[in-house]
Simulated assay, not measured.
Amino acid sequence: MKNIAVLVSGGGTNLQALIDAQGRGELINGRITAVISSTPSAYALERAKAAGIPGYVAARKDYPSSQAMTAALVDKLKGLDIDLVVLAGFMVILTGEMVRAFPNAILNVHPALIPSFAGPGCYGLHVHEKALEYGVKLSGATVHFVSEECDGGPIVSQKAVEVLPDDTPEVLQRRIMEQCEWQLLPQAVSLFCQDRLKVEGRTVRVLEHPECGRRNAE
């Protein structure tokens, strides 16, 4: 059984999707054992408490630098014996120490079809504002492994939705959350916990059987 830590900063809707999936038995061979928030007042911590999951706070203001915060987070995650780190609306940029401590073991969900509308400055509603300004007909969400390049890690899964003529950033955001993010993220987490994700350069292959992953790792 793999231990999962979910890093959050706000309301925790993607965390709730993971909690609900866990309750349905869909996080095969995985369990959420920690929720860590960069914001002490984040509602995500209430979601964790309601689900009986230990919650922790790692506020950026409590550390002299991003590197110091990252080092503290790595120590905390290692101390909790975490196997998979999930960034679910975590609004703090972590330094390379995190990726090096958890290579190909950090998943992020991004509310666009990477490489479109990704990278520095593309977060939250800004992503959907940019998509509408550009006039795209499709948008969606991407789950990817985290690398030292912002939104640049290997892509695990993507799903698209239609952009409608009367969409506002808020309406498009909600559609992408409901139809893409809340489905893709639990699926990707479950595949990781089953050892069914194999990274080959920039490509992520989904293995048919978990034992294939173990053989390929040997």
Score class of each variant (00 low, 15 high):
residue 55 G to L: 01
residue 192 F to H: 14
residue 161 V to D: 13
residue 166 D to E: 15
residue 72 A to I: 12
residue 83 D to H: 08
residue 22 Q to S: 02
residue 44 A to H: 14
residue 90 F to N: 08
residue 14 N to H: 08
residue 54 P to H: 14
residue 16 Q to K: 14
residue 28 I to P: 08
residue 194 Q to K: 02
residue 88 A to D: 09
residue 54 P to F: 04
residue 81 D to R: 01
residue 123 Y to V: 06
residue 85 V to P: 12
residue 102 F to C: 01
residue 159 K to P: 07
residue 176 I to S: 15
residue 6 V to F: 03
residue 84 L to R: 15
residue 72 A to G: 01
residue 82 I to A: 02
residue 108 N to G: 05
residue 18 L to P: 14
residue 199 V to N: 11
residue 74 V to W: 06
residue 188 A to P: 10
residue 207 L to Q: 06
residue 148 E to V: 12
residue 48 A to N: 05
residue 94 L to F: 13
residue 100 R to H: 10
residue 105 A to L: 04
residue 181 E to R: 07
residue 82 I to E: 14
residue 135 G to N: 05
residue 98 M to P: 01
residue 154 P to H: 01
residue 76 K to R: 01
residue 68 A to P: 08
residue 13 T to D: 15
residue 122 C to M: 12
residue 50 A to E: 09
residue 81 D to N: 06
residue 111 P to A: 08
residue 89 G to S: 09
residue 75 D to R: 11
residue 97 E to Q: 14
residue 59 A to Q: 02
residue 103 P to V: 10
residue 218 E to R: 11
residue 152 G to K: 09
residue 115 P to M: 12
residue 65 S to H: 03
residue 170 E to G: 07
residue 93 I to K: 06
residue 28 I to W: 07
residue 183 Q to R: 06
residue 214 R to G: 07
residue 130 K to P: 14
residue 19 I to M: 12
residue 87 L to N: 07
residue 189 V to L: 08
residue 166 D to K: 02
residue 147 S to R: 02
residue 149 E to Q: 11
residue 159 K to H: 12
residue 94 L to R: 12
residue 38 S to A: 09
residue 198 K to P: 04
residue 196 R to K: 10
residue 71 A to T: 12
